[in-house]
Write a protein that binds this DNA or RNA. Sequence first.
DNA 1: AATGAATGAGAATTCATTCAT
DNA 2: TATGAATGAATTCTCATTCAT
Lengths: 188, 188, 188, 188
Amino acid sequence: MRDGSQTRKKLERCALALFVKKGVSATTIKDIAHKAQIAEGTLYRHYVSKDELAQHLFTSAYEEMTQALKNIAQEKPTLKEKMHAMVHYFCEKFDEDPILFNYLLIAQHNQLKTIVDNEKNAHEFMVAIFNDAFKKKEIPKRDPNFCAAIVLGIVLQAAISRVYGRITDTMVSDADQLVVAIQGALNF
Amino acid sequence: MRDGSQTRKKLERCALALFVKKGVSATTIKDIAHKAQIAEGTLYRHYVSKDELAQHLFTSAYEEMTQALKNIAQEKPTLKEKMHAMVHYFCEKFDEDPILFNYLLIAQHNQLKTIVDNEKNAHEFMVAIFNDAFKKKEIPKRDPNFCAAIVLGIVLQAAISRVYGRITDTMVSDADQLVVAIQGALNF
Amino acid sequence: MRDGSQTRKKLERCALALFVKKGVSATTIKDIAHKAQIAEGTLYRHYVSKDELAQHLFTSAYEEMTQALKNIAQEKPTLKEKMHAMVHYFCEKFDEDPILFNYLLIAQHNQLKTIVDNEKNAHEFMVAIFNDAFKKKEIPKRDPNFCAAIVLGIVLQAAISRVYGRITDTMVSDADQLVVAIQGALNF
Amino acid sequence: MRDGSQTRKKLERCALALFVKKGVSATTIKDIAHKAQIAEGTLYRHYVSKDELAQHLFTSAYEEMTQALKNIAQEKPTLKEKMHAMVHYFCEKFDEDPILFNYLLIAQHNQLKTIVDNEKNAHEFMVAIFNDAFKKKEIPKRDPNFCAAIVLGIVLQAAISRVYGRITDTMVSDADQLVVAIQGALNF
DNA sequence: AATGAATGAGAATTCATTCAT
DNA sequence: TATGAATGAATTCTCATTCAT
């Protein structure tokens, strides 16, 4: 009997690349099957539909990233250290797999609506970080949603600029500057 | 105003709302025609295709915004004043028509790829602003692409947070704080 | 603008003929479209799916027949007269459109399960006729379901035998004999 | 009994139940394999195709029944006795395995078309019985096809009424009444 | 300009069957 | 004999666009 996990992996990488390049709805099953060198029907042994595949690729990557950031933050005692560690982690991960981030940040941005679980949502997670800092009097209290938006905006736009080719060097090379910018923006 | 022009306006508003709600490719001509209470064929009296309509809605709004920001910036002598005026203008416009901005920021994020003209591109426009400030020694020289990303990130994420319902008050009410954050982030 | 009702009529006749000849699931949309000289997509302007078309053809014919029989029965005072009139009506209708009855009796026999409404169900209608006759003391009381099955069995099998080509003359030519057989079987 | 033969039996019972419930073409190999707790490919160790399985289930049961009825009829000298014995046998068999009869009577009604062999056909067999009775002057001569249809109609409709749940008691409990009805209908 | 029925290319999906294990 | 992943032809259905009215 054949081992399906190899086929599945290939399927996912090829689908991801095509989704990023052409968009999900412009990518056909034929495209994916051809690129992955599998039969069209094979996709349906792994996912019930194209949409489920697109959703799965988004959700699993998004949740994995959020979970990793959460773990990293918990290990650090202060807001400053948390922020430093998280930004650096994000930058490293981006440089490792820019195609995946292209997908998360642009191609399937609207999928964000499907991440309703507050635990797994990046904005809400950031809000929690700030609420914690307020409680510990690390920084003066203010609207945590505003703070979360600032942090996400600075980091994600730096990534998006690379996705669009406006900036060509690595994310990691800017990581320290991004931390400085965040601290300057929120004055901590 | 003639009949044709009324129909066209209705068509565009209904199409925009549906594009935002379901995405462009998931919105059918039937959907648009039904919502705008016109026949399916009528759309083709105004646009040669669905794609042209989607593109037109995006491009006209995007370019109008970029042009307005350019005009505003030219009227102000210093980076600080330019930034203040631009951020406030953007916030006002967002509050006026959040659905349109939803479309610009998310639903059609990938349309951005089609805006290749540097003159009309928000990032390049921001780069120009910073290069001008460097030349005038208003702030110390650094990578203008980095600066542009910071500014866009801070403002756009504040808008996106509203689109996703994470923040519910008006953009205008945060405008001053956004300017402060930008200046703090880039230290000017 | 074109008039869809012509297309619809043609579609239904062609579909019926093919459903009878090959069975519903063995008949493809392509088959129907080709026979009706319409495009494949046109079918979907009239019915949401092939199944809905198959269902509609069955249900409308079945219900129309049941309703007509009900009207005929109401006009006659006695069981004997009701039976005579109904059998003759059924025989005439069969001879008019054997293909339709082929569909009702065989190709889509299993659709009967979908006719849940007792008002529109042939067996239940027959039961009502007999209950009425019992009440009026026209015949001695017995199980009305048994009586209904006898009547339906005699008439329908005569029709089915023609559908299978076992009997080749018209139903009408046997109508009187069928009435005699029913009366003999139930002794009234 | 070997393993293979057990699997085969289970396969057939599960297939039969599904064919009756959903129809042959709506039943997938996956459905059958799942219900019988075997792998999809295993079915092909026993039958060359799904159609062969469906055909085999129908034909073997149908021919077995016809043969048994033929044997029973041959043992009895008179039409009355033949009819009595056959009706009782049919009723007993129906009560033993209503699902199988559901399949024979409804789900595969169209398979009947494939039983062309006159020897094995129920209608032709009934015709032979009547021709024999005419020759022996047991009853006055008339159209034997008509007589066959009457007999089959009465018995089969009683069975079908049970399949559709209109009648809930056993066939055997109605057997004597069915014989009386047949004799009344044909006056012998 | 407007209508909406019709078109037909093309997309997603199904599923009987095959085949490597 | 059994497995179930893989196949791919066939099918259903979608929908942007056309066109007769």
